[in-house]
Design a protein around this nucleic acid. Structure first.
Lengths: 236, 236
DNA sequence: CCTGTGTTTTTTGTATACATATATAGTGAA
DNA sequence: TTCACTATATATGTATACAAAAAACACAGG
């Protein structure tokens, strides 16, 4: 029933948005590699549309920084340097802490309950090998904290920053040794928010992000060697 | 000489970028009012280009949140609610403080000198009626602090947040009574960064933004009454 | 074998064409 | 007058056409 409504509501979706989301996902998941060219005709044929929606999607990717334009050459997938990632994580650390502290003041009972539930789900999954589900629950946990801030701008920025490192997300969750630590950090964050203890939440989120940073940087440094540079300029 | 180089370098600029910057400025300056429709053919004729570059520019404005799309109706200039502005200012406050604290650690002697110079310029202008110059110097002052962070992502986000309230910027600087206070805040910030005193800088920037918020919100509430709502749907 | 030059091919940047959906205006009936 | 319905106009969404720039290639000359 509600799916019918949903279907009616989503009945209209411009091709440009479909293309945008498709390309965006492909880049964030690493299916399109940094340096790779996005050729309009090629993508158009591949996705079964004309160049127009492709181009409009690329304009959005350009503003988001996921592709860079080379004059009269077209778009290539932006490469992320380690410095870029550190910059992102530095900002994200500050804003995640901000969100946690705001959540201490503003969280509603319903959201608090959802947060507890998400924490429990993570705990259940942490010893399995369902990395994708684990990542989803982790995202959900933090989304609830974002929502509790009641600040739409903050939510948008945090989502964007988080997505910047999406391609490394699964990678570092595969380090099962860290799951226990992640879980206890979640507990600390939840308990802190429940008590309204800003200092504790700030502390917990800070170490949470720090650990994540270390894990991601380690994954990158490890992965960097196994990649062959000449792949970058390939056509598809 | 260097202008020639500059001219050669800027020799190529896609029409879409020209259109994007033009429309962006018009929106941020309030020349295009919230609710106003952006009609492609009309803009195309006005700017002497075809619909294609107009549409591509609109896609960027859409992602930036400066326009909102209505399905099969086109783009309208996004209206900013007071809540939106408060959300922006809340995030901006946190990030400006972050930038200031980072500047305490990372600022170079050259940038510190530039900061002092910008502070002096502001002092010179504060008792004149050159509001535009005053606004520019104010922007420069903060840009130097941003640059000192050496975090490109932070710089980008802060610039974006600042631009969100560009249309109110001149308005609130016209309140000449606040100039003296702004000036002393700049001094405190400069001195704090020079000493590397994070707490002092954090404090000074916090009150700086708080005052700005109060001034802007006051300006909005005052200006709101003088606007006639039926203007919104006008064609041009 | 390498290098420089002219030609072809590919791809972008921009303009235009066409189909469809929405708004608008107009006409007639209750 | 007001409502309903149709016809018309307008604007968007998408596809295609065309020009120009860059890249790739071939070929002649050293």
């Amino acid at each position: 029933m509600s799916q019918d409504i949903n279907a009616v509501m989503n009945e209209y979706l411009p091709l440009r948005d479909v293309v945008f989301q498709t390309l965006r996902q492909a880049i964030l998941r690493g299916e399109l590699e940094p340096g790779e060219r996005l050729m309009e005709i090629h993508l158009a044929n591949r996705l079964g549309v004309s160049r127009t929606p492709i181009r409009e999607a690329i304009r959005k990717l350009e503003l988001e920084g996921l592709v860079v334009m080379i004059p009269r050459r077209g778009a290539i997938v932006a490469s992320i340097t380690e410095k870029d990632l550190q910059d992102v994580l530095e900002v994200r650390r500050t804003l995640e802490i901000m969100a946690g502290e705001m959540a201490c003041e503003r969280i509603t009972p319903e959201l608090l309950q959802q947060l507890e539930e998400a924490g429990r789900e993570f705990m259940k999954l942490k010893d399995t090998d369902e990395f994708t589900s684990l990542a989803e629950v982790d995202v959900k946990f933090h989304d609830i904290i974002y929502a509790a801030t009641d600040n739409q701008r903050l939510i948008t920025i945090l989502n964007n920053l988080r997505e910047q490192m999406y391609r490394y997300r699964l990678e570092y969750l595969k380090d099962t040794g860290s799951h226990e630590r992640l879980n206890s950090e979640h507990c600390q964050i939840y308990e802190g928010i429940k008590r309204g203890d800003k200092a504790a939440v700030s502390e917990a989120i800070g170490t949470h992000i720090d650990n994540q940073r270390d894990a991601i940087l380690a994954a990158i440094r490890k992965g960097e060697q196994s990649q062959n540079p000449e792949k970058a300029e390939k056509t598809e």
